Amino acid sequence: MSRAQSPVLLLVALLSTAGLQAAAETRLIMVEEQGCVWCERWNAQVAPVYPKSPEGQRAPLQRMDIGDPVPDDLSFDGKFRYTPTFVLVDDGTEIDRIEGYPGQDFFWGMLDRMLRKLDTGAAETD
Rank of each mutant, 00 (worst) to 15 (best):
T85H: 11
L118M: 00
S6P: 01
I98T: 00
G92M: 09
L15R: 08
C39P: 07
D68G: 02
Q45T: 14
K52Y: 07
T26N: 06
E94C: 01
I95F: 00
L118A: 05
E33C: 12
G121R: 10
G19K: 09
M110G: 14
L14R: 05
W42E: 07
V31A: 05
V70A: 11
R97Y: 10
R116L: 03
Q62W: 14
P69W: 00
P54H: 04
I29D: 01
Q34P: 00
Q34N: 07
S53F: 05
T17V: 15
P7I: 02
D77K: 15
T83I: 02
L88I: 08
V8T: 10
N43V: 08
V46Y: 03
M1H: 11
R58I: 00
R63V: 14
G100P: 00
D68L: 06
R27A: 03
L28A: 12
P48A: 05
D119K: 02
E94I: 00
S16V: 04
P54S: 03
R3V: 06
Y101T: 14
A18E: 09
Y82A: 15
L14Q: 06
M110Q: 15
V70S: 02
E32F: 13
Q62C: 11
M114R: 05
L11R: 03
D73K: 09
T125M: 06
P48K: 07
A44M: 09
D73R: 13
R27M: 01
V49W: 10
T120E: 01
I95K: 04
K117N: 02
D73Q: 12
L115N: 00
F107W: 03
M1F: 10
R116M: 02
P51I: 03
M114N: 04
F86I: 01
T120H: 01
V12L: 13
D119G: 08
C36H: 10
Q21N: 12
A24H: 08
R97S: 09
A13G: 11
T17Q: 12
F86D: 03
I98K: 03
C39R: 03
R81L: 13
V12I: 15
I98C: 01
T125D: 05
A59P: 00
T85R: 07
L14W: 05
E55I: 05
M30W: 00
E25S: 10
E32P: 00
I95R: 02
L14P: 02
S6H: 08
D112M: 02
G103V: 04
E124F: 09
P84F: 05
P60G: 09
W38Y: 15
A59I: 04
W108N: 07
V12H: 06
P102F: 00
L9D: 13
A4D: 10
L9M: 13
A4L: 11
Q45F: 12
V87A: 06
L111D: 06
K79V: 14
R41L: 14
R81Q: 13
A24R: 14
L74N: 07
V31R: 00
T120R: 01
L15G: 11
L15D: 02
D73S: 11
K117D: 02
R3T: 10
P102A: 09
A4K: 12
